[in-house]
Each structure stands twice: as structure tokens, then as C-alpha cells.
């Protein structure tokens, strides 16, 4: 595989470019699954103007990479890519992009979900909302914690 696997960036994510790059990365790709997490215009029913994402540099990359490696051990992936944005993100913009490529669809689908589930609960990122009644830190979702049970 060529190129970086995990990138954390302040810049908008070009999901089309990322999808093309992973397909072109090599191997006999028969399935490409990509997931984009998008900033919604509301948080818990309250309108927001933006999200602000903070991360723990070094640890964030390390946690995501470790779970991408684990996904590669579990499924026959040809390549995988995770791009996570930090800083100020407006509604409609992509917060996170995960793509997995394999010969057949099952591995790519499952590995993408596995990587996202672990990213949500173990990668050190924190969201704060902007423009609501008050600026507030987004609370962790119990459903996200439980999502890991199916991979144990």
C-alpha cells in the first residue's frame, strides 16, 4: 500500500479524491466501502452554527492506526484510509472519512464499520458545539460504547 493510512487535518476533506486514491493504491480491488461522517445542523434538537473538534495529537493517530492494523488482521483488506478533520467544521462538511478496499464486499463493509466503531469510542477527539443557546461539549453516547460488543 502506498501513502499514509491515517491523516488528521484542519483542511476540508476531499472525499472523491480520497476514494480514487484508495482504489488506485494497488491490488485487485473489487469492493470499495467509504463512510463519511457529516456535521449536522443541530445537536440534540438545538440548531448549531458549527462544531469545533479538539484532539490529542500523537495519541489520536496512534489509536486509529492500531485499529486499522487490527482490521487488516481480521479481514483481507487491500488498503484502508482514515481522514479525520479537527478545528471548526460547519454543517454539511465532512468530519471523518473512512475507506476500505478488498477483493470482495464483505471484508470492506465489516472492516469499515469496525474502524468507525473503535474510532468513536477510543480515538481522543472531543466535539464542542458553536452557536447554540450556549457553547457546549458534546456528551459521549452510550450506544457508541455498546457498539464495540459485537466485535469482541
Amino acid at each position: 500500500m502506498s501513502g499514509e493510512t491515517v491523516t488528521i487535518t484542519l483542511e476540508p476533506i476531499d472525499t472523491n479524491k480520497e476514494s480514487k486514491a484508495i482504489t488506485a493504491a494497488g491490488g485487485n480491488v473489487g469492493a470499495l466501502v467509504s463512510f463519511s461522517g457529516i456535521c449536522r445542523a443541530d445537536e440534540k434538537g438545538e440548531e448549531i452554527s458549527a462544531l469545533f473538534l479538539e484532539h490529542y495529537p500523537g495519541m489520536a493517530e496512534q489509536e486509529i492506526s492500531a485499529h486499522v492494523e487490527e482490521a487488516k488482521r481480521r479481514w483481507p483488506l487491500l488498503s484502508a484510509r482514515v481522514v479525520h478533520r479537527v478545528g471548526r467544521i460547519e454543517p454539511g462538511e465532512t468530519i471523518v472519512f473512512v475507506a476500505t478496499a478488498s477483493a470482495h464486499r464483505e471484508a470492506a463493509f465489516q472492516a469499515a464499520e469496525f474502524i468507525m466503531d473503535y474510532l468513536k469510542s477510543s480515538a481522543p477527539f472531543w466535539k464542542r458545539t458553536e452557536g447554540g443557546k450556549r457553547e457546549a461539549w458534546v456528551e459521549a453516547n452510550e450506544k457508541d460504547e455498546r457498539a464495540l460488543d459485537r466485535w469482541k
Binding site: V96, L119, F125, W137, N141
Partner: peptide, 10 residues
């Protein structure tokens, strides 16, 4: 050593 709230990335 780092201390932080539950994570909310993704």
C-alpha cells in the same frame, strides 16, 4: 499523563 472526558470523535 493525560486526563480527558469520554471521547466524541467521528
Amino acid at each position: 499523563i493525560a486526563f480527558f472526558p469520554p471521547m466524541t470523535g467521528g
